[in-house]
């Protein structure tokens, strides 16, 4: 039981199937089709700079909306009786376990011309195209990743002792003050992991924009998908930039989380 040896297969596996592929991406990004060193892939990749910015923007907005929607529900859940908490957790989790393509497809069905929502709006006299814009993409994103925000927030908040909140109220804090001085500081780790779990996949997602957005709404994931089949070098360069951008984001985010935790 004191052995380290059992971890060897895993270490080898991770090197072969995680490290080497990532190094291949690195290598491929800095070479051309013939395998000689070149920065051409990067110069091509920068042609997609606007897509890149748009992806980060959409991911940012989606994460923000998820946070705003999830925070109250997570708090409400955490203050319920044990069995109600469990039931609500399950209700939040079930859609998450549905295939993600089906979930987007569901919105496609709902929002399409002549679909249920469109029909209802027509009755009210509103005639508009619901699909094919950035709003629809963000909606899809929020729907896709909301549980990933609720669950970490909830699991942190569930650990906040009711006594602590009562103590704060007892010491003369009103509801808003309790939120600000007790619940919020204690929920920061949950916020950090929630943001991580929503931002990373939504910045890199593909297909959501293809399904729900217009031609101008495609995201960086879609670009990688489209390019990689024909030009691996440029595809690698974009993937590399995406990874580095996400890495920087995570480092900054964790730095914030730590700072806040220390301040407490």
């Amino acid at each position: 039981m004191k052995l380290k040896r059992p971890s060897i297969p895993y270490i080898i596996w991770m090197v072969v199937f995680t490290m080497i592929p990532l190094l291949l991406i690195l290598f491929s990004a800095f070479t051309d089709r013939n395998g000689t060193f070149s920065l051409e892939a990067f110069s091509k990749a920068f042609g997609y700079f606007d897509v890149f910015l748009r992806s980060l923007w959409i991911a940012f907005i989606s994460t923000l909306i998820c946070l705003i929607l999830a925070y109250p529900i997570a708090y409400i859940m955490s203050r319920q009786k044990r069995n109600v908490q469990n039931a609500l957790t399950m209700i939040i989790m079930i859609p998450m376990w549905m295939n993600f393509l089906l979930r987007i497809y569901a919105w496609l069905t709902l929002l399409q011309n002549g679909g249920p929502v469109d029909t209802m709006l027509s009755f009210l006299g509103i005639h508009t195209t619901l699909l094919g814009n950035q709003g629809a993409v963000i909606l899809g994103m929020v729907y896709e990743y909301l549980p990933f925000m609720v669950l970490p927030l909830y699991s942190v908040m569930a650990k906040i002792d009711n006594g602590l909140i009562e103590a704060a109220e007892d010491l003369g804090s009103n509801k808003i003050k309790v939120m600000r001085k007790v619940v919020f500081p204690l929920s920061i780790p949950g916020i950090v992991s929630g943001i991580t779990m929503v931002f990373v996949p939504s910045a890199s997602t593909f297909l959501v924009a293809q399904y729900l957005g217009g031609v101008d709404d495609i995201m960086i994931g879609d670009v990688i998908d489209r390019i990689f089949w024909s030009d691996q070098n440029t595809g690698s360069a974009i993937a590399l930039i995406l990874m580095v951008a996400i890495l920087i984001f995570l480092i900054i985010l964790n730095f914030f989380g730590d700072e806040e935790a220390i301040a407490q």
Binding site: M14, F17, G235, S236
Partner: peptide
């Protein structure tokens, strides 16, 4: 270090893992 090796895999966007593996498998 070993614990974080696993986290790299978890935090790498799926699409990057996908294309990276594709690159290796093609080679």
């Amino acid at each position: 270090l070993l614990q974080n090796a696993g986290n790299i895999e978890i935090l790498t966007p799926d699409i990057v893992t996908g294309v990276a593996l594709m690159l290796m498998f093609t080679l």
